[in-house]
Amino acid sequence: MSTTRLAWAAGLAILIVLPFITPTYFLHLLIQILIWAFIYTAWSLMGRFGFVSFGHGAFMGIGAYVPALLWSYWNVTPWLGIPLGVVLSGLLAIIIGYPCFRRRVIGHYFALVTLALSQVVLLSLIAAREITGGSLGFTQRAVGYSWYALQFPEKSYFYAIAVLLWLFGLAVWRRIDRGIGREALEAISEDEEAAASVGIDVLREKMRVTVISAALTALGGAVYGQYVMYLNPETVSGIAVSLQIVFAAIAGGVYSLFGPSVGALLTLSLTEGLRVWFGANFVGAANTIYGILLVLCIIFMPQGIVGTLQRPKGSSARRDIAWNWRKG
């Protein structure tokens, strides 16, 4: 117990010290990693129970675009815009999730429905190019340092926000993992009928975790949008973003607290590393290597990187049993 506390304290100390000793470029990378880690963690809240959503790009897109547009066109502070985007994402999750869960759309079919959702939001953003700038993207109206506009030219502010956001994501993950809600969701993920027969309200439990996951993803999208200031439909929504979320979270490991974060750390460092390394040579090689590494990860570490590292500890606790009806 005390060793884990020590590890937490050490980890937090490193996170606090980092911005003072790292060059701006790495701080920028770190902020992105933390925000994405938060989004991957949000996805894993439902992904770990086998509710595989390819629609989280949609939630992220809404979370990013709503406050940005409100601010740039109508001067509405992100302090209102962000909650609005989060609520809208939650509503969208209900609109999509309710009929799916009601009609028992699960597994591949659920993945397909959510995949379509990603694309609907992406295409809507592109189609509304009068206000969103379409495929060319959209730059927020900048006002320099402002709490009202939630804009900070200094990276350290966003670093602090990203750390808090990430810790918040871990807290939510842990709350669900420790609570009796996890057991209900595990039961549902295995056998919805049997789960319902022991009194679990399958629809309500699934809706709850889906709405939480979608709302957090939107929050992540909003912070990302405030940080980068430039939004493009392709980088904050759509199938590409959804796939990025799914792959990174699974590669890191959706069953462990730090799995999705490790996924973010590795995939983003890898993308950056390969991009810098290859530069303008061998265009496409970086993406190819990235893709191959991901495939290898998923094939050889189905529990994810963190899950694979943790496995030996867990397996010894498992015991095989075989009782009979006989007494004694």
Binding site: A317, R318, R319, D320, I321, A322
Partner: peptide, 15 residues
Amino acid sequence: SSVQTNGMGAAALKK
């Protein structure tokens, strides 16, 4: 609390 359902026999599962 440490018993898993893996490896439980048919009779135990009925129970």
